[in-house]
Computed example of a mutant assay.
Amino acid sequence: MSDHRDDATNRIAARFDGEQTEKNEGKAKNKKNAKNGGNAQPAQSNGKADPSGNKKNDGKAKNVKKDWNARSVYLSDDLDRKVSTGYKRLDLELEMEFGETVKKTRHFYPLVFELGLERMDELEPQELKERIERMEL
Protein backbone atom coordinates (compact mmCIF):
# COMPACT_ATOMS: atom_id res chain seq x y z
CA MET A 1 0.00 0.00 0.00
CA SER A 2 2.89 2.32 0.74
CA ASP A 3 4.24 1.82 -2.79
CA HIS A 4 0.86 2.83 -4.23
CA ARG A 5 0.86 6.00 -2.13
CA ASP A 6 4.45 6.83 -3.14
CA ASP A 7 3.56 6.25 -6.81
CA ALA A 8 0.58 8.63 -6.57
CA THR A 9 2.75 11.22 -4.82
CA ASN A 10 5.35 10.97 -7.57
CA ARG A 11 2.70 11.46 -10.27
CA ILE A 12 1.32 14.51 -8.47
CA ALA A 13 4.83 15.89 -7.97
CA ALA A 14 5.61 15.45 -11.67
CA ARG A 15 2.40 17.27 -12.59
CA PHE A 16 3.21 20.19 -10.33
CA ASP A 17 6.68 20.99 -11.67
CA GLY A 18 8.38 18.05 -10.00
CA GLU A 19 7.92 19.55 -6.54
CA GLN A 20 7.46 16.98 -3.79
CA THR A 21 5.68 17.65 -0.55
CA GLU A 22 7.96 18.44 2.37
CA LYS A 23 6.76 15.27 4.12
CA ASN A 24 7.75 12.97 1.26
CA GLU A 25 11.00 14.84 0.71
CA GLY A 26 11.84 14.33 4.37
CA LYS A 27 11.09 10.60 4.07
CA ALA A 28 13.38 10.32 1.06
CA LYS A 29 16.17 12.09 2.94
CA ASN A 30 15.70 9.80 5.95
CA LYS A 31 15.86 6.70 3.70
CA LYS A 32 19.00 8.00 2.00
CA ASN A 33 20.54 8.85 5.38
CA ALA A 34 19.79 5.34 6.65
CA LYS A 35 21.38 3.78 3.56
CA ASN A 36 24.50 5.88 4.09
CA GLY A 37 24.86 4.61 7.64
CA GLY A 38 23.63 7.90 9.09
CA ASN A 39 26.15 10.03 7.18
CA ALA A 40 23.91 12.55 5.46
CA GLN A 41 25.50 14.83 2.90
CA PRO A 42 24.35 18.46 3.33
CA ALA A 43 22.69 19.95 0.28
CA GLN A 44 24.70 22.59 -1.51
CA SER A 45 22.53 25.68 -1.82
CA ASN A 46 25.10 28.42 -2.08
CA GLY A 47 24.32 29.44 -5.65
CA LYS A 48 27.41 27.73 -7.08
CA ALA A 49 27.10 25.66 -10.20
CA ASP A 50 26.13 22.04 -9.76
CA PRO A 51 27.93 19.32 -11.76
CA SER A 52 25.62 19.90 -14.75
CA GLY A 53 26.70 23.55 -14.89
CA ASN A 54 23.37 24.99 -13.74
CA LYS A 55 23.19 27.46 -10.88
CA LYS A 56 20.93 26.09 -8.16
CA ASN A 57 19.58 29.44 -6.97
CA ASP A 58 19.20 31.27 -10.26
CA GLY A 59 15.41 30.84 -10.54
CA LYS A 60 15.69 28.11 -13.17
CA ALA A 61 15.90 25.18 -10.78
CA LYS A 62 13.99 22.10 -11.86
CA ASN A 63 12.84 21.39 -8.30
CA VAL A 64 12.73 24.48 -6.12
CA LYS A 65 12.10 22.52 -2.91
CA LYS A 66 15.28 20.55 -3.55
CA ASP A 67 17.49 23.28 -5.01
CA TRP A 68 16.44 26.44 -3.17
CA ASN A 69 16.83 27.36 0.49
CA ALA A 70 13.88 26.68 2.77
CA ARG A 71 12.56 29.22 5.25
CA SER A 72 9.78 28.64 7.79
CA VAL A 73 7.45 31.55 8.35
CA TYR A 74 4.80 31.77 11.06
CA LEU A 75 1.75 33.90 10.32
CA SER A 76 -1.31 34.97 12.26
CA ASP A 77 -4.62 33.52 11.04
CA ASP A 78 -5.59 36.86 9.49
CA LEU A 79 -2.32 37.24 7.59
CA ASP A 80 -2.40 33.59 6.52
CA ARG A 81 -5.90 34.10 5.05
CA LYS A 82 -4.66 37.20 3.19
CA VAL A 83 -1.77 35.22 1.71
CA SER A 84 -4.07 32.37 0.61
CA THR A 85 -6.67 34.75 -0.83
CA GLY A 86 -4.01 36.85 -2.57
CA TYR A 87 -2.52 33.76 -4.19
CA LYS A 88 -5.91 32.52 -5.40
CA ARG A 89 -6.85 35.95 -6.76
CA LEU A 90 -3.59 36.43 -8.65
CA ASP A 91 -3.66 32.88 -10.00
CA LEU A 92 -7.21 33.36 -11.28
CA GLU A 93 -6.39 36.74 -12.85
CA LEU A 94 -3.32 35.34 -14.62
CA GLU A 95 -5.33 32.34 -15.81
CA MET A 96 -8.13 34.51 -17.17
CA GLU A 97 -5.78 37.02 -18.83
CA PHE A 98 -3.02 34.77 -20.20
CA GLY A 99 -4.13 31.16 -19.68
CA GLU A 100 -1.19 30.57 -17.29
CA THR A 101 -0.99 29.74 -13.62
CA VAL A 102 1.07 31.07 -10.73
CA LYS A 103 3.11 28.35 -9.07
CA LYS A 104 2.93 28.99 -5.35
CA THR A 105 6.42 27.83 -4.37
CA ARG A 106 8.27 28.87 -7.52
CA HIS A 107 6.56 32.22 -8.21
CA PHE A 108 4.14 33.49 -5.56
CA TYR A 109 6.14 33.13 -2.35
CA PRO A 110 9.37 34.51 -3.83
CA LEU A 111 7.40 37.49 -5.21
CA VAL A 112 5.81 38.15 -1.82
CA PHE A 113 9.27 38.27 -0.26
CA GLU A 114 10.88 40.25 -3.08
CA LEU A 115 8.14 42.89 -3.21
CA GLY A 116 7.92 43.00 0.57
CA LEU A 117 11.66 43.54 0.88
CA GLU A 118 11.52 46.33 -1.70
CA ARG A 119 8.85 48.04 0.40
CA MET A 120 10.86 47.42 3.59
CA ASP A 121 13.78 49.30 2.03
CA GLU A 122 11.51 52.37 1.81
CA LEU A 123 10.41 52.28 5.47
CA GLU A 124 11.58 55.00 7.77
CA PRO A 125 12.32 53.89 11.36
CA GLN A 126 9.16 55.61 12.67
CA GLU A 127 6.91 53.82 10.16
CA LEU A 128 8.60 50.51 10.97
CA LYS A 129 7.97 51.08 14.68
CA GLU A 130 4.29 51.94 14.01
CA ARG A 131 3.82 48.83 11.86
CA ILE A 132 5.31 46.58 14.51
CA GLU A 133 3.11 48.14 17.20
CA ARG A 134 0.02 47.68 15.00
CA MET A 135 0.85 43.99 14.52
CA GLU A 136 1.11 43.43 18.26
CA LEU A 137 -2.44 44.62 19.03
Rank of each mutant, 00 (worst) to 15 (best):
K35Y: 07
M120R: 12
K29H: 13
D121S: 03
D67A: 04
N33R: 04
F113A: 13
A13M: 01
N10F: 06
K48R: 06
K27T: 02
N24P: 00
A70E: 12
H107L: 04
H107T: 11
V83E: 00
F98E: 12
M135S: 09
K27P: 03
A70V: 14
I132N: 02
G99C: 11
A28E: 14
R15Q: 12
P51F: 06
R89S: 12
K29L: 10
A49I: 09
K35E: 15
K23M: 04
D80G: 11
E118A: 11
P51H: 03
L111Y: 14
N63C: 03
K55T: 05
R89E: 08
K129F: 08
R106S: 04
A70G: 02
N57F: 00
N69L: 11
L92T: 14
N69R: 13
P110C: 08
R81S: 15
Y74E: 10
E124R: 11
D17V: 07
E118T: 15
D91S: 01
A14R: 09
E130Y: 02
L128K: 09
E100M: 14
K48H: 12
K82T: 07
F108R: 00
P42D: 11
D78Q: 14
R134E: 08
E95Q: 05
P42S: 05
A49M: 08
N33G: 02
N39S: 04
N10P: 00
T101R: 15
D7G: 05
Q44D: 12
F113V: 12
R134F: 05
G47F: 00
R89G: 02
D67P: 05
N33Y: 01
G53H: 04
K88G: 10
N46R: 09
E114M: 15
T85G: 03
V73N: 10
F98S: 13
W68L: 03
D3K: 02
E127F: 02
E114K: 15
G37V: 02
V64D: 01
N63S: 11
L94E: 01
R81T: 15
V83A: 06
G86E: 14
E127K: 07
S72G: 03
E97A: 10
T9S: 13
E122R: 09
L117M: 14
L90Y: 02
N10A: 10
N54F: 07
T101N: 10
D67Y: 00
L123C: 12
K88V: 14
P42C: 03
K55C: 03
G86A: 12
K35C: 06
G47S: 03
T101P: 00
G37L: 00
E118S: 09
N69F: 03
P51Y: 01
M96C: 06
E95S: 04
T9K: 05
R5T: 06
G26P: 00
F98C: 15
